[in-house]
């Protein structure tokens, strides 16, 4: 006789209830995602016009009806972000990749353990702390907020991401690929440079892209280092504007036109993050297949 346990009805209810809860939790988590994305897209899309990309800050001229005459654009922020993150990338790439190569090629010695620990420390450190360090090291010394200080802070934030991805990707390169070069008697450095690194390059670029997207959205360290600037500036040793800084600044103003600019910058940043994440996902998928 196939009899059910006497308390099974209650257990089944608990089972259904808890399964429902897990589904509910997942849906609940997707609600803010959908809300944030749709708000950013709908409100931000209204801000994207020619002026948005071609003008810098315009002082709000308040009319009698309280409306601002000319909102201006965020060209200074776009140029600033490109310069700051670009220079950060140039600084972070060699350190990140070569440190990753070191961890992958010489994985088990005490130096590697220390280096690995330090990448963990760096990636665990709140970005504001990195910003404070750059502030003390550069801004305080030079008595000048500067784009360069911001680049240094962002570079420090990028390094652990790039190092870790590089190490993990290099370890995935099959040993047989090295053996082919080894059989010809090539030294280790030659194998690494001509066989291993090129094979792993697309994977490493994935990590670099993710680090790039994350750094572009970082705000707190920039607040302490590049400060912000109302004009288009390309001078590395002076304050500079950056997109996320504008998002922050224009959120906290009473002028609706500037609030709209904030949504616009948010849309640009979100699109960047979305594009990078989607393309990375697409790339890793086709690689694992």
């Amino acid at each position: 006789m196939i009899t059910q346990a006497t308390n099974y009805r209650r257990r089944k209810l608990v089972d259904y209830g808890m399964r429902g809860l897990t589904i509910g939790a997942t849906v609940l988590a997707l609600i803010p995602l959908v809300l944030i994305l749709s708000y950013v897209v709908f409100r931000g899309a209204g801000a994207l016009n020619i002026a948005f990309f071609t003008q810098a800050y315009e002082p709000p001229v308040v009319g009698l009806d309280g409306e601002v005459g000319n909102a201006g654009g965020v060209l200074h922020g776009i140029i600033g972000s490109l310069i700051i993150v670009g220079i950060a990338l140039i600084m972070a790439l060699p350190i990140g990749i070569l440190a990753g190569v070191f961890l992958a090629e010489y994985p088990s010695n005490s130096v590697a353990t220390v280096v690995r620990f330090c990448t963990d420390v760096l990636s665990a450190a709140p970005s504001i702390v990195i910003g404070v360090a750059a502030y003390v090291l550069i801004v305080q010394r030079t008595h000048q907020f500067s784009a360069l200080a911001g680049s240094v802070a962002l570079a420090v934030l990028m390094v652990p991401v790039i190092t870790r991805t590089t190490e993990e990707i290099l370890k995935l390169v099959p040993h047989t690929m090295r053996e082919a070069a080894m059989a010809l008697g090539a030294p280790k450095w030659w194998q690494t440079l001509t066989v291993v690194l090129p094979t792993a390059m697309s994977g490493i670029m994935t990590g670099v892209l993710l680090a790039f997207a994350r750094a572009t959205g970082e705000t707190a360290p920039l607040l302490l280092t590049v400060l912000g600037n109302n004009n288009v500036s390309v001078k590395l040793l002076e304050p500079m504007a950056a997109l996320p800084l504008l998002t922050y600044k224009y959120t906290d103003t009473p002028f609706p036109a500037q609030n709209t600019l904030a949504w616009g910058t948010a849309l640009v940043l979100t699109l960047l993050v979305l594009t990078v994440n989607l393309s990375v996902r697409w790339a890793t998928r086709s690689r694992t297949k």
Partner: peptide
């Protein structure tokens, strides 16, 4: 069939089968 009851019969749950 377990005895004369189909363990894949309608209304029979896997949990009931596995405890027998």
């Amino acid at each position: 069939l377990l005895g004369e009851h189909n363990i894949y019969g309608s209304g029979i749950e896997p949990q009931a089968v596995r405890r027998r």
